[in-house]
Simulated scan of single mutants.
Amino acid sequence: MSDRGFIRHVVFFSAKDPVDRARVYEGLSILKQNPHARVLEVVENSHVDSLSGEVDVVVYGEFDDEAALAAYKAHPLYQQSIDLVKPLRELRIAADF
């Protein structure tokens, strides 16, 4: 995918209801315990860019290779996070590079 020696995985989320933003953040924060990421951050969007307010939470991860990213997605914590967040989310956009 890249010649930098690792893969970046970035996922943008929005809550269906603004009341659930904190629950989306908490559900995604479970992913920080997943041992397969080199780096994993879960942050709330600061909404500084006035032209794009759709995103509420961002997950940013760095993985050694495609196998590490696949192991991350196969880990039980990943499914636990999906189970909590999917019913609450409106938008999910992912990019790997």
Rank of each mutant, 00 (worst) to 15 (best):
V24W: 04
V19P: 03
V11L: 05
Y72F: 15
S81P: 05
Q79Y: 06
F97I: 07
E41G: 06
A94D: 00
S14H: 09
D83R: 10
A22V: 12
L88Y: 07
K73W: 03
N34F: 10
Y25M: 13
D20L: 04
V59P: 02
Y78N: 11
A37T: 00
P18L: 10
Q79E: 14
Y25I: 02
A95F: 12
V19Q: 15
N34L: 11
F12L: 15
G53W: 04
E44T: 08
L84E: 10
F63A: 02
K73C: 07
G5N: 11
A68F: 02
L28F: 14
E54A: 13
P87T: 09
E44V: 06
V58W: 05
A67N: 14
N34Q: 10
L40D: 01
V10A: 14
D56F: 04
D65W: 01
Q79N: 10
A71Q: 12
M1N: 10
V43D: 09
S14T: 04
P87H: 08
A22Y: 06
N34I: 11
K32D: 02
D17R: 13
V85E: 03
E62S: 03
L69R: 06
S81C: 06
R21A: 09
A74V: 01
L88T: 07
Y60I: 13
H36C: 06
L77S: 10
P35D: 01
